[in-house]
Design a protein around this nucleic acid. Structure first.
Lengths: 187, 187
DNA sequence: AATATTTCTAAGCACTTGCTTAGTTTTAGA
DNA sequence: TCTAAAACTAAGCAAGTGCTTAGAAATATT
């Protein structure tokens, strides 16, 4: 009864994610998205509703991309060493996927840290909270640590992870490796 | 022979710095600056040449604001403990000055990390390089450490400082304190 | 008091932003 | 083969961007 779409929504979404990842939300215009996605603005709005809608879908897309890393992290059983591996995996992903800068989610968290946007803000707080909870569980598996130490170390590692994601945008491999190694010497 | 300025350049500059600090460069418009500084666009351009000129002056203004902290750091003589104090001072300044988010320079470093702007980029690389050199000297004052360890620990602390500045925009006091304490536990 | 010189106001420049819409093209079902 | 419904193109909207400018207002000197 009608014409069918000439593009694959998943395909163009990944291209959008890639652009948002590289430039952030504010510094990515709909015109740039048009070019990168290879479709007209009309099609963008038809498929994703708004620039923000497209961005939220891009975040979901990114989450599913790093999901296998999270699964591996969740299911591993070596306590704190798992967290260290998780750190190394975190900085490896952007390089593998195509030399992007930092973690898309952490970049977003920083960009919207003091902004008004409630929807995106909530997404981010949720995400960071989830990671913290995982850290707590991993650290707790070392029974010798009391609860206060567990929470202290979880706080420490959460900031270290956040900082690493921020710093990894501008620092080289050696600096990052030194950082991770010394970070875990303190536990 | 003529009318005199109805505003103090230093005063309006500090207001501009405050706005840039809170919002970053791209998300601060000249119209917003007009309101915050309380003067017309014409006056902004007469005094500072361009938005970028005003931003560079704002960076200088910030540097001089935190300069006494740097001086204290340089002139202290307790090696690594000075760096730790420096970390604490760093997160304290934004709170004292008016509850701002993170370090203005580090925020800027992040915002321009992958941008085209050469002038601002150079300023930032210079700034971070200076801090790293200070760290190296402080760590070297412990004669028991070989040069390789010194450099490793300097890298580590530079990333930690950078990460702390990024993370301190969104984390609370307790998390930050836990982070600093554990960061220096094993050095 | 008159004047020369600077400051200031406010309108406007061309360009970019997110988003919409009128109108054309395509295509599956009758 | 005709037609109705969806997909597409491209132009355009109002609002916001950094920056400029014509003209009014103010004031230190003569």
């Amino acid at each position: 009864m009608a014409r069918s779409k000439q593009y694959n929504e998943q395909e163009v979404l990944e291209k959008a994610m890639s652009l948002f990842w590289r430039n952030g939300y504010e510094n990515t215009s709909v015109r740039m998205l048009e070019k990168e996605m290879g479709i007209n603005q009309f099609s963008i709005y038809a498929s994703f509703g708004s620039k923000q809608g497209l961005f939220l879908e891009s975040l979901k897309c990114y989450k599913s991309k790093v999901n296998c890393m999270f699964e591996k992290f969740k299911n591993s059983t070596n306590g704190i060493n798992d967290i260290k591996d998780f750190f190394y995996d975190s900085v490896q992903v952007p390089i593998e996927v195509g030399n992007y800068k930092g973690c898309f989610l952490t970049n977003t968290y920083n960009e919207f840290a003091e902004a008004e946007d409630q929807i995106i803000n909530t997404q981010m707080v949720e995400f960071m909270g989830g990671i913290k909870q995982l850290f707590i569980e991993k650290i707790r598996s070392d029974k010798s640590k009391d609860e206060q130490t567990v929470l202290k170390q979880a706080n420490y590692l959460l900031l270290a992870k956040h900082g690493l994601a921020a710093a990894s945008r501008v620092n080289d491999k050696q600096e990052i490796e030194d950082y991770i190694e010394l970070t875990f010497k303190n536990l």
